[in-house]
Amino acid sequence: MESSVSHTDVATGDTSSRPVGLDRTTTGMSSGAPRPFLRRRRNPWYSRLIRDRALLVMALPGMALLLLFQYLPLLGNVIAFQAYVPFLPFGQSPWVGLDNFAVIFNGDPAFVNALRNTLVLTLVQVILVFPAPIALALLLNSLLSERIKRAVQSVLYLPHFLSWVIVVAVFQQVLGGSGMINNFLRTHGADTFSIIGNSDLFVGLLTSQVMWKDTGWATILFLAALSQIDASLYEAASMDGASRWRQMWHVTLPGIRGIIVLLLILRLGDSLTVGFEQIILQQGGVGLAASEVLDTYVYNNGIVGGQWGVAAAVGLVKGAVGVLLVLGANKIAHLLGENGVYKS
């Protein structure tokens, strides 16, 4: 991705320091018109290759890593079509066609349960977790003192660097049955409450853990986008008598709309991935009915249960759905005139 961006810049001969997204929009608008840019694109590919050789060479190590660790392992997905036996070489496990996908199409209750839990979590997290950093970024942006802003920001994004094991342990130590709060209540003869291990509150618990851990971190991107907004727009707006609220609505939000759409699309691609590590650590108490999601289903079936083929099939479908969601959402973004993840 990095390399293709540089390529575009060189091809258009654009040396301005405009943000990448804007640059792409302007070149996109130009399609169809006989501009120098297009004539140059008709150059034979090898001459373009020679012209861009330095950039291409610089991109090579990254490409090699991507190929080796991202694309090559994709080939392992063939086990979704095999009765895979882990101690035989790939080719030697018997081929079973689409048998492994039967759990998906026949509605295996455990699979359906995992899918339902995943979708509920995704929905809740897109509605509650996704907007949280935007709101926080707007709030921080409205703080006048730069020093306080930085201090608050640092405190808020530190939890991102804690691993899930630690985060889950902290929540258990505070909210668990023998956690700080319950121990205090018990010592003073009050009724205790059950949060950890309560299957009714599990979605809420997971969501609040995610928010506590990652909201601060996610504001960084939005704050960067906010700082890109031309200050003269605010001046002009206030000259016209716009209130703070209207400034936010007409200047600030449109200014970061591009990045919001971009992140939302990327989030959709991950929508079937809802915190494997976080959930597996807390599955014992709440039970599978409330806590099994697609990722833990794949783990419990594949690694623990030895049903490698079925696990790979579910994982493959999950990946395919993710790709389709990204492409679909991107298409819609284009129709609405946004840039999306890439330009069409």
């Binding site: 258990q172 668990g176 049955g177 023998s178 956690g179 319950n182 205790t192 950890i196 291990g197 650590l281 807390q282 014992g284 108490g285």
Partner: peptide, 8 residues
């Protein structure tokens, strides 16, 4: 029983 037994 210790209240945190299920996840322990």
């Amino acid at each position: 029983v210790h209240p945190d037994f299920a996840d322990a």
